[in-house]
């Protein structure tokens, strides 16, 4: 009976090694592929005017509804086809990266910064400050965002600033709510009690003790927001409250093509794919940054 056991042993070991090798390769890919995608997108956005083959806003009615080059009827000059009025999809995608990426990154930076500061302040100080901040958060969360965007559009006119403002004015509340919970938990931890016994000031505790320990959750939330913001911008632009036509943005392109999904799916699909790629890459990179920032995981 014993003789059967050693073979079982070697088998499990081998199996296990195989698994680790595959996981290691996947782990490497999970870092490099999203990184390359992100860098590529950013380069496209910055150097759009050198890279784009066509003027993104120049309609050419004769070439409208040209399918992508790999399909029957596709033309080599329009790699990804054209839209309803004959504009080159590829060029519009490249220019669209500018708007979509800058809106979402800007909004995320603004909302995360405000939300984190208020969340930490509320969670650490507690009492009345906490109650006031959290009531404001509740109001911001329950306020209809569309109404605000419309008011802003009326007041300062639709455009880039309106989109960023509309998304930022209410967007910080979600961060504040989550960060406040984390900050509250960490404020009650043993090491914060230690810092207080050591005479550390509230500012030092918030910046040196609480903030570094909420970065994990913050990054996860921020990366999840990348997609949300691109889509929110699309919605606003679609309603005419955001980026004005004919400036391309990915979200606006997706909504433009909706009516033609059955006969010219490529108009919506390619910008959709771009949004998906950025969102996924963002999430993967977020995970990676989170692991790198954590000294416990860094050394594994």
């Amino acid at each position: 009976m014993l003789s059967t056991l050693p073979t079982a042993k070697t088998k499990t070991k081998k199996q296990y090694r195989g698994v680790t090798r595959v996981t290691r390769v996947i782990q490497k890919l999970a870092f490099w592929v999203p990184l390359i995608i992100m860098i590529a997108m950013i380069i496209l956005a910055i150097f759009a005017n050198f890279i784009a083959p066509h003027d993104p806003n120049l309609p050419k009615i004769t070439d409208r509804y040209t399918p992508p080059v790999f399909m029957e009827g596709g033309k080599s000059e329009y790699l990804l086809g054209t839209d309803q009025i004959g504009r080159d999809i590829l060029s519009r995608l490249i220019y669209g990266a500018r708007v979509s990426l800058s809106v979402s990154l800007l909004v995320i930076l603004i909302t995360a910064a405000i939300g984190t500061m208020l969340g930490i302040a509320a969670g650490y100080s507690g009492g009345r400050a906490d109650a006031i901040i959290m009531r404001v958060v509740d109001m911001a969360l329950s306020f209809p965002g569309l109404l605000l965007a419309m008011l802003l559009a009326v007041a300062i006119g639709p455009g880039f600033t309106t989109v960023v403002l509309a998304l930022s004015i209410l967007g910080w509340a979600g961060y504040a709510r989550m960060i406040r919970g984390e900050a509250l938990r960490i404020s009650q931890s043993d090491f914060v009690a230690q810092a207080r016994v050591n005479g550390a000031s509230g500012w030092r505790i918030m910046t040196r003790h609480i903030f570094p320990n909420i970065i994990n959750s913050l990054i996860v939330l921020m990366t999840l927001q990348v997609g949300m913001m691109i889509l929110a911008e699309a919605g606003l632009s679609y309603l005419g409250l955001g980026i004005t036509v004919p400036t391309p943005s990915w979200g606006a392109m997706v909504s433009d093509g909706r009516a033609n999904l059955d006969n010219a799916w490529w108009i919506s699909l390619f910008p959709g794919v771009c949004i998906g790629l950025v969102v996924l890459s963002g999430n993967f990179l977020g995970d990676w940054i989170r692991d790198k920032l954590d000294p416990r995981l860094r050394q594994l």
Partner: peptide, 9 residues
Amino acid sequence: EPSGQIVSG
């Protein structure tokens, strides 16, 4: 499982 296993005995 799968990391913890009875190897023999």
